[in-house]
Simulated scan of single mutants.
Amino acid sequence: MADDISSRPHDELTRRGLLFVLSSPSGAGKSTLARMLLEADDQIEMSVSVTTRPKRPGEEHGRDYYFVEGEEFEEMVADNAFLEYATVFGNRYATPAAPVNQSLQDGRDVLFDIDWQGTQQLYQRAGQDVVRVFILPPSLAELRERLESRATDSNEIIDSRMQRAASEISHWDGYDYVLINDDLEACFAKVQTILATERMRRSRQTGLIGFVRDLMTG
């Protein structure tokens, strides 16, 4: 006999998780927006990437990254263990498939802070689960000013990041949503709206068929 659906909250209907991608040139705000989203929303978790770059002070293996040597990284590529991988500033980065797939099955959302190359690969592997958001700076002049205000990079590195930014921006049309980050709070509100809307898509409501069947027969 069907459960009494009149007492079943709609937010308890099961759904499949989604892969929420935030991309932007360095300095345009994706990492800040990602951090804000993680702090504000307990239904989404950050994807932990595999990397060959050295561990920095304060970083932990398994929390910030999975740190591996180049040979192990290549073995994982050969084993098809990654959803996407890329080389950035001489280091290898990748998204391990197993934990992401488990999160999707459990109805948890996974947040990605990756570039356009990683986004393209991720979409090729898991297109129906991927939501792609690209963050634009208000101008290239302001983007450079933000990079310089960090006071962490040399002018040579900043020049390199600006060149890379131009390349990344040229791929803006490969995303589902494009936002201009000229006001951080306003941009964050739009990111939250996109996420909430995508969670409600009928295709992700795996419990909806059973709910409607019970509704019609109850």
Rank of each mutant, 00 (worst) to 15 (best):
V88Q: 02
V88Y: 08
V88R: 11
V88T: 15
F89N: 12
F89L: 10
F89K: 07
F89M: 09
F89E: 08
G90H: 08
G90N: 06
G90K: 07
N91A: 10
N91D: 09
N91I: 00
R92P: 09
R92C: 09
R92L: 05
R92E: 09
Y93L: 10
A94C: 14
A94M: 00
T95S: 14
P96Y: 05
A97C: 06
A97E: 13
A97Q: 01
A98R: 15
P99H: 09
V100M: 04
V100N: 00
N101R: 05
Q102H: 02
Q102Y: 03
S103G: 01
L104S: 09
L104T: 03
L104I: 13
L104E: 06
L104M: 11
L104Y: 12
Q105C: 10
Q105N: 02
D106Y: 00
D106N: 13
D106H: 03
G107N: 06
R108I: 13
R108E: 05
D109Q: 10
D109I: 10
D109A: 04
V110E: 05
L111W: 12
F112I: 14
F112V: 15
I114G: 07
I114D: 06
I114C: 01
D115I: 08
D115S: 09
W116S: 15
W116R: 15
Q117C: 04
Q117L: 03
Q117R: 01
Q117N: 08
G118R: 07
T119Y: 03
T119E: 05
Q120F: 09
Q121E: 15
Q121I: 13
L122V: 14
Y123A: 11
Y123V: 15
Q124L: 10
R125Y: 06
R125G: 00
R125N: 08
A126L: 11
A126K: 15
G127R: 11
G127S: 09
Q128G: 02
Q128C: 00
Q128L: 04
Q128F: 00
D129E: 13
V130F: 06
V131P: 13
F134Y: 08
F134V: 04
F134E: 02
I135A: 09
I135Y: 01
L136C: 10
L136E: 05
L136K: 07
P137E: 05
P137M: 07
P138H: 04
